[in-house]
Amino acid sequence: MDLRAILTDDHGALSGVPKQSMKDFVVQKIATFIATGILDLGDPLPSERELAAALSVSRETVRGAILILSTKGILSVTQGTRTVVASTEVGELAVQSARYRDISGYSLDDVHEARLLIEGQVARAAAVRVEAATLGTLAKSIEAQEAAIDDPVRFLICDREFHTTIYRAGGNAALADIAADLYSYLLDHRRRAVAQPSSIATSIADHRAILAELEARDPDAAARAFAVHETRIYTTTKQLLTKSSRKR
Rank of each mutant, 00 (worst) to 15 (best):
V17T: 15
K19D: 14
K140I: 07
E89N: 12
V17Q: 09
A13K: 12
T36R: 15
T202A: 10
D188K: 15
I204G: 04
G120D: 13
G73D: 06
G170Q: 15
L3F: 03
T88C: 08
A54E: 01
S76I: 03
P44S: 04
A94V: 00
V122P: 02
L41G: 00
I210V: 13
S199E: 10
Q79W: 15
R217K: 12
H163I: 00
R49E: 08
P44W: 00
A212K: 14
L7V: 08
R63L: 01
A212I: 09
L187V: 14
K247Q: 08
G73M: 01
S70Q: 04
A180G: 14
P152V: 02
L7Y: 09
K19H: 13
G80I: 03
R246C: 08
A148C: 04
Y183E: 12
V77N: 01
A53C: 04
T235F: 06
I103M: 07
E48C: 06
A5V: 11
D110I: 13
E92R: 12
A225Y: 04
G12H: 13
A212T: 10
F162V: 10
K140Y: 05
L214H: 03
V84A: 05
P44N: 06
R63N: 04
V84E: 09
F33D: 11
S21Y: 12
A133L: 08
K23V: 13
E131F: 09
T237G: 03
I68V: 14
A125W: 06
I142M: 06
H207V: 07
A133Y: 07
I103A: 13
T71G: 08
L55S: 01
V77C: 06
K29A: 13
E89C: 00
